[in-house]
């Protein structure tokens, strides 16, 4: 982000490395989330807890919509359209917060507690680890919004925006797998 001190070609070289580094981090985290998914199948097998289906669909849609706004924000930054950029960014943060509240208040407020057998452990383990990433994503968005308001991103130099955006989409991708694994797959034991 050190704008003035580096030449554009230096910036580009570092950008290339930053991208690769961030993607490697994603791959690394894939093993974390993959481990949780595997634990889910190991412990739950073909069963799943009885969860509020409507809630699951709503939070999933909210997160997907937030990803769409994040995409718009990045397009805005790429074309130096500040209004689009900032508006979409704030929308993303709001939707992200709505997702978080949906999980923490309504999902965690349900019947199952963390200490209720493998259902509780995995349910809270998966949603908790994911929520932690959503929360950190929101913090990142706020930081980017703060710097965006001060006009610190240009069409040539906005790695901060890009990093924040692909991190956010990544968290969405994780949920794409977690949602069916938690809500849809298997049958509720009777």
């Amino acid at each position: 982000m050190s704008v003035a001190t580096t030449t554009l070609s230096q910036y580009r070289a570092q950008l290339r490395s930053n991208r690769l580094g961030l993607w490697l981090f994603f791959i690394s985290e894939l093993f974390l989330f993959g481990g949780l998914l595997i634990s889910r199948f190991y412990l739950w097998g073909g069963t799943r807890p009885d969860l509020d289906q409507r809630l699951g669909l709503i939070v999933t849609s909210i997160l997907l919509l937030s990803s769409f706004f994040m995409y718009l924000a990045e397009v805005g930054a790429e074309h130096e359209n500040r209004r689009l950029f900032l508006f979409s960014l704030i929308m993303t943060a709001l939707l992200g917060t709505a997702f978080l509240l949906g999980v923490v208040i309504f999902e965690w407020g349900g019947e199952i507690r963390p200490w209720d057998g493998a259902f509780g452990a995995i349910l809270y383990g998966m949603t908790g680890m994911h929520a932690l990433h959503v929360a950190s994503g929101i913090v990142l968005i706020l930081i980017v919004a703060y710097n965006g308001l001060r006009g610190r991103y240009t069409a040539e130099r906005h790695w901060g925006v890009e990093a924040c955006a692909i991190y956010w989409h990544y968290v969405d991708v994780v949920w794409i797998f977690f949602y069916p694994a938690i809500y849809l797959m298997g049958t509720v034991p009777t």
Partner: peptide, 15 residues
């Protein structure tokens, strides 16, 4: 081990 709460929600045990 299965706690009473786990039994109530029909949960399997840890492994």
């Amino acid at each position: 081990v299965l706690s009473p709460g786990a039994v109530a929600v029909g949960s399997p045990a840890g492994q």
